[in-house]
Amino acid sequence: MTDQPIAQLDSHPSPASPAPIFSGAAVVASCVGFVLIGALQALYGPAIPAFRGEFGLSPSAAGLGLSAHFVGGVVGVLLFDRLFGRVGNRLVLGSSYALMAVGAAGFALAPEWPAALAAALLAGVGFGGVDYGLNQLFAVGFGHRSTAMLNILNAHFGIGAILGPALIGVVGSEHYPAVFLCFALANLPLLLCLRGVRNEVPVPGGGEGGGRGQVLGRSLGSVLGVFVALYVLHVAVEAGVGGWEPTHLETVGYGAGVAATATSVYWLMMTVGRFLVAPLALRFSAQAIITVSCAGMTVCLLAASVPALAPYAYAGVGLFIAPIFPTGLPWLNRAAPRARRAGAVVIAASMVGGVAAGPALGKAIEWSGIRAVPLLLCGVSAMCLAATLWLIRATRSQ
């Protein structure tokens, strides 16, 4: 593994795969699948007022819908990781899409809240399978273009996360069952595109540098542990900004409308950032991209502590944090090509990080106050940068 531009590595190309993993139609269908999982995750929040009215729920009870989704997501990642390589790729992805469809339809039609939670859990299992399966296949399936393709794939998640709440806003939260049913039906055509997915599991190591990276002077467990820490911490920053930016902006003097708009811009910039980094990933290594990303979001969070700069600084955080998740997966696969379950561990850890970030940050804010939000997140971001620098040293090229 090296910090050289990828273009310099092409003089020693790795052997080509016997057949592409995805046809053109399957690539498009995969991007549509990520729009759908982004929309699914984002649909629960805007529909909470309708949940509460229909089932007579407290705010905390209504919030269990998204919690059930995330728990199902972790289960789905770990479950389908066990199946990955034992059954064909088409069966893994097809069953994931089917579980999402059945779970979403069950959530829409559930007569009681416990049944709705069970359906959300089921949909989450399918969500986790799609998230893990496509990320894993894109990470090893496009040679030196894998990092670029992963950023494009995950950018479509952001498109779905923007469109889902917008759709609820247009039709009204009271019509959330119709939205979830439409979502369920939208999964079904993707099953027809699975013929374009190669059924056998590709061997990792066909990405940047031809899999020449290795762990030097450090145990594999230590490297995986720091990768997990990087994913948990950066998702904590991502969720922390998304959850607390509106409150912080209102506390320092901005109106509710401005705060809400600025938060939407933050999520939009995450999507834009992944599209922008795709061509850069063809020229620069994953290590370089993630280092710049961590440094940039640390500086932006420090700037967000200045009230006059805060809305713009938070947008910068979204831009810089965008490439970390998709760019880290090919790096991980090259650093630990024999650790087959490494990708599943970090993806599951990122979901756990999103769940744990809320209570942990909330407790820290109780001690320090709302105005300290950007500084608290800046500290977490600095830890991401430290983890990245450690990983660069621990996964050097021969």
Rank of each mutant, 00 (worst) to 15 (best):
P20K: 07
P20D: 01
P20R: 07
P20I: 04
P20Q: 03
I21H: 03
I21M: 09
I21V: 15
F22C: 00
F22V: 00
F22I: 01
F22D: 00
S23N: 00
S23M: 01
S23L: 00
S23H: 00
S23Y: 00
S23C: 01
G24I: 06
G24E: 06
G24S: 13
G24M: 08
G24A: 15
G24H: 10
A25N: 10
A26K: 00
V27L: 11
V27W: 14
V27M: 13
V28A: 14
V28K: 04
V28Q: 01
A29C: 06
S30Q: 12
S30Y: 06
C31Y: 13
C31L: 10
C31A: 09
V32F: 15
V32W: 15
V32M: 14
V32C: 06
V32K: 05
V32A: 08
G33S: 07
F34R: 05
F34G: 02
F34S: 02
F34A: 06
F34Y: 03
V35D: 05
V35N: 03
L36I: 05
L36Y: 00
L36D: 04
L36C: 02
I37E: 04
I37R: 05
I37F: 10
I37P: 09
G38Y: 07
G38H: 04
A39F: 06
A39L: 12
A39I: 05
A39P: 09
L40H: 14
L40I: 14
L40P: 04
L40R: 06
L40T: 15
L40A: 13
Q41W: 13
Q41G: 13
Q41E: 15
A42G: 11
A42R: 13
A42H: 11
A42L: 12
A42M: 12
A42C: 10
A42I: 10
L43K: 09
Y44F: 15
Y44L: 11
Y44I: 15
Y44P: 04
G45D: 05
G45V: 12
G45P: 11
G45K: 07
G45H: 08
P46I: 03
P46R: 09
P46H: 10
A47E: 08
A47N: 08
A47R: 01
I48M: 12
P49V: 00
P49F: 00
A50T: 03
A50L: 02
A50V: 02
A50E: 02
A50K: 04
F51N: 07
F51L: 13
F51P: 05
R52K: 15
R52Y: 01
R52Q: 13
G53E: 09
G53Y: 02
G53T: 03
G53N: 12
G53D: 10
G53K: 08
E54W: 10
E54I: 13
E54F: 13
E54T: 14
E54Y: 09
F55M: 10
F55E: 04
G56E: 10
G56F: 05
G56Q: 07
G56R: 11
L57M: 08
L57E: 07
L57W: 09
L57D: 02
L57C: 05
S58I: 09
